[in-house]
Amino acid sequence: MNPALQALITITVGVGGCVGYFWLSNLVLDRVLFPARGPQAGRNITRANMIRPWLFLFPALVALAVYLAYPVVATAWLSLHRDAGGAREFAGLDNYARMMAEPKFWESMRNNLLWLVVVPALSTAFGLLAAQLTDRIGWGNLAKSLIFMPMAISFVGASVIWKLIYDARPAGQDQIGILNALYLWAGGDAPQQWLQIPFWNSLFLMAVLVWIQAGFAMVILSAALRAIPEETVEAAILDGANPLQIFFRIKVPQIRGTIVVVWTTITITVLKVFDIVLAMTNGQWETQVLANYMYDKFFRAFDVGVGSAAAMVIMALVTPILVWNVRNARREMQ
């Protein structure tokens, strides 16, 4: 069968199934279980209304249970057991101890921390800058679309693009990597293997994520900037503030809540970063990060215990930020 046709059928069945579920289950509830007629009509309506939210939440709850709750529990269990000839036996914190003894784990932790500081900071800063500047120029909306566009590219796709940017050809040949081309043009001696220079290569990887996330930050912050009452800016102008002072002392403080939400949202993405590292260096040359480390252990080395332990570490790091993020977002919405 033609794949396009397959996709079409999948979409129809999927969407139709969802709509059908809500419509039919609602119908059964109202007509069969608790019909709104007869002597019990009033009580039936109340009961139906109590059950309805659960009915509608049911698919989401099942999905969450199967794809979120179960994996968490299973991973936690796996991280506390070792492979004993096909069966699993309890190992206490043995897997964690083995993981901590590995230099590659600490390299991942270090790199993750670096990502954690650099990427959200730069993405938010660039996003804020772009939001402020594009609001003030005629072709701002075009610029905004261009800056936002990377959001539509998958991380792997973006990695491929940036791999070309960092590409290095032997000396003497034309460089197709723009970074090397620029480097040589600016007087560099020989083309560099950018992704093999420890420390700096991590920054080059981060550039990819910053490139993607700055667009996200810009869109959210631009909306927040527009919501600032124009009069407060005018009052500041009359008070003698220059454009920089208006930006940093009037505008930024008024959107501080949104900045925090954007920052933490990007932080969570960063903690899970995996595809970019996998596609560009696969963790070589000291660029390993936790998610790729976990993948390495679990699916390449088949060390299920240590892989699960790494997964638990990532979860432990993400959870508090996630909670904080949700709290902030809620407060923003009020």
């Binding site: 009452p229 009069e231 407060t232 005018e234 009052a235 500041a236 009037i250 403080p253 008024q254």
Partner: peptide, 8 residues
């Protein structure tokens, strides 16, 4: 609208 700086 008063235009007070809300964060100050």
């Amino acid at each position: 609208s008063y235009a007070l700086y809300p964060h100050m």
